[in-house]
């Protein structure tokens, strides 16, 4: 095997910053031969051991299980101990920029302050809430089928890769973010759980699932294939199933699709905005006027309708599984 080890030359730009002493971060350049056997963490170690002992980053298990070593390479979140160097070179070429998960939260080099991540995680009651019989007579068995309902949400290692890849986190400080939602799903989908606060908490506007832009960044970022956006979709569905979805603009926007499709098959775009917003429609008038002038808003009698509408209506009756 050993004669098969290949090497490639890579230029690294490494983020350096000490919140105690520096006003601004700087990037240190290193050129290194990288072997096909190495992962990103090996490179971080080589920088620390061979070049600069003050270089700081978190790592513990080096087996992709503690979540400590999450960082970014060329803007892409990853676990340093899991990411093979040659895969990175295939993807980005031979210039790699090494940065913390969140530059804004950098404390020292790649070490960040993850307080917001933990606060949000804790806000969704990330544990099973249940009345426990203190002296049980039998085991509390969860069947394999019931465990499968968690959809692997329990694989999360709280590394924060998805959280700091989520664009909404940077704009809306209240937003819980993908990891907290994945945790919320993990416990709300657990048959033993009886918490009725959690689902309401994650359905509140501003902080909750309705503010997710559906960009799928979290699904790409997660090193454990937790697929947080899938769980976010499930949380939306649970809100309707459990009857806790509130009558607000976001919920009406979802329900409005069904209403509109039942009428025309295709969407009546203007009608959807009107149904979702109610009186709030007035704030859209200036843009709507501009659009109308450019022929972007058809008059009511010109809105298209799908052919074979009877089929669509029949299917909507027979296949609908939710009421609002």
């Amino acid at each position: 095997m050993s004669d098969k080890i290949e090497t490639k030359k890579v230029k690294f730009k490494v983020f350096r910053f000490n919140a105690d002493t520096d006003y601004l971060p700087k990037y240190e350049d290193y050129e290194m031969e990288v072997t096909s056997e190495e992962v990103m963490l090996d490179i971080l170690n080589r920088i620390k051991f061979n070049h600069d002992g003050s270089f700081s980053y978190r790592r513990s298990c080096r087996h992709g299980i503690c979540g400590a070593c999450a960082m970014k390479v060329n803007g892409r979140s990853t676990l340093a101990c899991k990411e093979r160097m040659f895969d990175l070179i295939d993807l980005f070429g031979d210039e790699l920029t090494i940065e913390p998960l969140s530059i804004k939260r950098a404390v020292k080099d790649l070490v960040i302050d993850k307080k917001d991540f933990w606060d949000k995680h804790n806000a969704v009651n990330p544990y099973v809430v249940a009345d426990i019989d203190e002296e049980p007579e039998s085991e509390n068995i969860v069947s394999p089928e019931e465990a499968e309902q968690l959809l692997d949400a329990d694989y999360c290692i709280q590394c924060g890769a998805c959280h700091y890849a989520c664009p909404v986190i940077e704009i809306n400080e209240e937003f819980f973010g993908p990891a907290a939602f994945a945790a919320a799903y993990r416990f709300s989908a657990d048959v033993r759980d009886s918490d009725d606060e959690r689902l309401k908490t994650v359905n509140e506007m501003g902080q909750g699932v309705w503010d997710c832009v559906k960009c799928f960044e979290c699904a790409e970022a997660c090193p454990k294939d937790v697929n947080p956006i899938e769980k976010i979709t499930k949380l939306h569905q649970m809100a309707f199933k459990e009857g806790i979805a509130e009558n607000n603009v976001a919920v009406r926007h979802a329900v409005g699709f069904e209403k509109s499709m039942a009428k025309r098959g295709v969407l009546d775009e203007g009608g959807l905005v009107l149904y979702s917003e109610g009186l709030g429609i007035v704030k859209h008038i200036p843009v709507a006027l501009k659009m109308f002038r450019k022929g972007k808003i058809p008059l009511p009698w010109n809105i298209p309708t799908s052919e074979n509408m009877d089929e669509i209506q029949k299917l909507m009756k027979s296949s609908s599984t939710v009421k609002f």
Binding site: K214, T233, H236, Q237, F240, H253, A254, V255, G256, F257, E258, S260, M261, G265, V266, L267, S306, E307, N308, E311, I312, L315, M316, S319, S320, T321, V322, F324
Partner: peptide
């Protein structure tokens, strides 16, 4: 495909997943 309906745009999927599957399968 003049018979096609809206794809649900991920919003119908948030509300009624099965219905969205049936309509897109159509």
């Amino acid at each position: 495909l003049v018979e096609a309906s809206c794809c649900g745009a991920s919003h119908l999927q948030d509300y009624d997943e099965f219905l969205s599957l049936v309509l897109n399968a159509r």
